[in-house]
């Protein structure tokens, strides 16, 4: 489940459905869970992932060639969520594949497959609002994003529909590049806290044990995604899982 405010930092990691192959996904997720990761995003690959940097964008293009899709994502979640009942699986997708599936049906099927939350970077809060009663009924948490340039007025509106946790985009730009965790960043996190009691997940630019140490005590969740996908791409899923285990030891989160 989702952590509570002030719980110790935990790492959320990532799978792109179909990358490196549909068969490899389940084994890679087993490896992440065995390494101590309790929260995993399952990303539906998309042809035009505009909020992602090249690591994830290229992995999406690969995943599409091996058959990654919305249906395969639901299928995978069903398998891994029953196998790993203590882990929390989060659906990550751009809007169009879900829109084509039919949003209402998708929400129902995602909840039935065992998803606890979802991140849709190009779905603005205005679009979520009409679905809130259904999502609350299903127990499927919209994890909404805030960014450094989001106004207070808008953070308040986002906080109203956010469930589970708020995804705090650490900096301007797309995924996959280093972030500096200085005073500006801390002031930004403090500003977001004024609007919500939900735990915060920090994403974009979390790439090392040092980053995780810097975020310990600042937030409840850190999204360690692009770097993990690089490991998976370059070293294979088993070494990626071993690296993840070491990362949690090095960052004193094991």
């Amino acid at each position: 489940m989702f952590p509570k405010q002030n719980d110790k930092l935990q790492v959320m990691s990532h799978a792109i459905v179909g990358f490196p192959s549909l068969d490899a996904n389940e084994h890679a997720i087993d490896g992440l869970v065995a390494s101590g990761v309790k929260m995993i995003e399952l990303q539906v690959p998309f042809s035009d992932p505009v909020a992602d940097g090249h690591t994830i964008a290229n992995a999406c293009h690969e995943a599409l060639k091996t058959g990654g899709s919305v249906r395969e994502t639901l299928k995978l979640c069903k398998t891994v969520s029953s196998k790993h009942p203590d882990a929390t699986f989060i659906l990550m997708s751009y809007l169009n594949p879900l829109y084509r599936y039919g949003l209402e049906q998708l929400f129902r099927d995602a909840a039935a497959a065992g998803f606890k939350g979802m991140i849709i970077p190009d779905m603005p809060v205005e679009e979520y609002e009409q679905y809130m009663p259904l999502l609350d009924e299903l127990g499927l948490a919209p994890i909404l994003l805030v960014t450094p340039n989001t106004s207070d007025e808008r953070v308040a509106r986002i906080a109203k529909s956010a469930r589970g946790m708020v995804y705090v985009v650490s900096r301007m730009g797309v995924t996959g590049k280093q972030t500096q965790w200085g005073d500006d960043f801390k002031a930004y996190v403090k500003r977001i806290r004024q609007h919500t009691d939900l735990p915060l997940s920090i994403g974009f630019g979390v790439r090392s044990a040092d980053d995780l140490k810097d975020l310990t005590g600042v937030a409840e969740v850190a999204a360690f995604c692009s770097r993990y996908i690089e490991w998976q791409r370059d070293l294979g899923s088993d070494t990626a899982a071993a690296n993840m285990k070491q990362l949690l030891v090095d960052s004193e989160l094991a």
Partner: peptide, 10 residues
């Protein structure tokens, strides 16, 4: 409409 990552809205 306007379906963009939050960062582009302002």
């Amino acid at each position: 409409g306007r379906y963009v990552p939050e960062i582009l809205l302002p």
